[in-house]
Write a protein that binds this DNA or RNA. Sequence first.
DNA 1: GTTCCTGCAAAACCTTTGCACCACG
DNA 2: CGTGGTGCAAAGGTTTTGCAGGAAC
Lengths: 175, 175
Amino acid sequence: MQQEFLKASCAACSSEGLCEKKFHDLLRSSGGRLTKERKSLLTIVCDIKGHFQPQNLLAMLRRRGYPVSLTTVYRNLSLLVRAGIIRRTDVQEGGSHVGARYEHVWGRAHHDHLVCSRCGRRVEFSYSAIDALQEVVAAQHGFSLERHTLELVGVCPDCRTAESGRRAAAGRTAR
Amino acid sequence: MQQEFLKASCAACSSEGLCEKKFHDLLRSSGGRLTKERKSLLTIVCDIKGHFQPQNLLAMLRRRGYPVSLTTVYRNLSLLVRAGIIRRTDVQEGGSHVGARYEHVWGRAHHDHLVCSRCGRRVEFSYSAIDALQEVVAAQHGFSLERHTLELVGVCPDCRTAESGRRAAAGRTAR
DNA sequence: GTTCCTGCAAAACCTTTGCACCACG
DNA sequence: CGTGGTGCAAAGGTTTTGCAGGAAC
């Protein structure tokens, strides 16, 4: 039971089939082949909006009727990273291990994350002034900057409200 | 064969036994106990200058004559994270998994990293202007900032030199 | 004395590898 | 057709868990 292969039109990239191009380029340059599994991978990866994990990706593939093995997912994930299509961003929640996490490398706009240390909520943001300063720092050390990962960890508005409420209550009884 | 327990005087923290205090506070607040294993852990962790991994830490403990099991290391590492004494910074090299990595949360000066994507060299830096802007971003989203992780990935001076040399050579022959 | 902690061994995971078969180019 | 890719199963690592004995408070 097979399914026709969709052309990967990546919303994240500048909608021009950039991801496909990147992938083809990498494959060509290394003598790789464009198998149907790789087409599926690329299609799904390009459809994903946010972060994803290998298992996660496998599930989506299966759900969409692409029968791909986890091994292949792993093998091609590193390929996609090397092609510059996705990026690894190992992130842990609450101190325990979660495993690899991937996300699109956006065509133009880069985004960073605000993470709530209480509820784990993740908010994306981008702030060009910070990006600019990063270039400055890199230059100071003689580095040419390729990319960066910035994660701000703090307490989100909701959890702050909840905590100040609790603190007030505790103060009333215990103090 | 036992060894006397050193008082943990943490060079990273403001040398005032801050780590000890943080740890005791956490233990007290959760009904935890100050076992000799935990004292050892704290001592060694406070002596470590840079990054370390669980296995790594275990080796150091053994080398110093503290007989602690790997299980205990793992269990207490997350405790130390919760106490705000160390921080997890999962970092992968070259796209493949390396495992958890920890480092001190410095008393005052926070530092970030510049990483070379070619040779893996890591350079620490701190830049207050960036820190300040991060506060701004957090505030804009209603977050109160606790900490952050910033990693700048690029090419270090040495590798840049090496690459431009190679590029020049290639240009001479191939073009 | 209670609890909580430790160490051991085993389980649970995630990721990589070896190998036979298959398919892209 | 030849080489590289896939799937499966098994290996390799790291991290977590169950349990009995021991230690802190």
